[in-house]
Design a protein around this nucleic acid. Sequence first.
DNA 1: ATGTCCACTAGGAGTGGA
Length: 261
Amino acid sequence: MQLATWNINGLRARLDYIKLWLAEREPDVVGFQELKMEDDKFPHDEFEALGYTCVTHGQKSWNGVAILSRLPIEHIESGLPGQEEFGARLIRARVGEGDASVDFTTLYCPNGKSVEHDDFPRKLAWFDALRDWAKGFVDPAHPAILCGDFNIVPTALDTWDEEAHAGSIFHTVEERARLAAVVDTGLRDLFREREPDTRAFSWWDYRGGAFHRKHGLRIDFLLGTDAVVSRLREVEIDRDFRKKKDGLTASDHAPVIATLD
DNA sequence: ATGTCCACTAGGAGTGGA
């Protein structure tokens, strides 16, 4: 069972590129972030033709999340309770069947823009709400995944330049404490379970040749309960799909893929 | 630390967001 998360940076602009990736990687379940599209515009036909059923929580212009699955999927809920006015950022579904099913949530966490911006305290409050929501159902004994673009760099190992960025957006102690509180509800960072010491990134700015200069951040995670970790075979950041393919532009984020037994 | 890309409005570039 292969599960993935990917901030695609606009579904309209990325559809052909996404099809290349689905054909090559053949994941079973994918959480998408940043659809930038309303639900009635979502191209269900395109994904159904490839064997995927989709559930979506979108909006015009910005944000928006979806879950694609070629296993049985049952939509559970959309939207983080009490935080809906901050955009369409959460969708949750049960994927797979019986003992092999997983409670799968994908998230597009607020960016915050800068520590001086009004969005920064709102970002912190959003994470407090996420922790409270996760507490309601996360249980180490039950397979659950929270994945997505968290827009927080957890440690100095997850940024290309901690010295330059410590205290600035994505790199503050306040954000790191909020992310740790979400993890402390009973989750583990699947990439770090397999790669405890590797400096690896999942996002590179489009500007300044950041990808080729290795100026990136690891801000996209698959968080899983103990019941997921016990089935975990491998985790990969699919950085090849941060590159142009057949003249098509990539997202500024790479997919992250976990394989479970 | 900037050499980009996306969507919107509008009917061609400019703006806001990341």
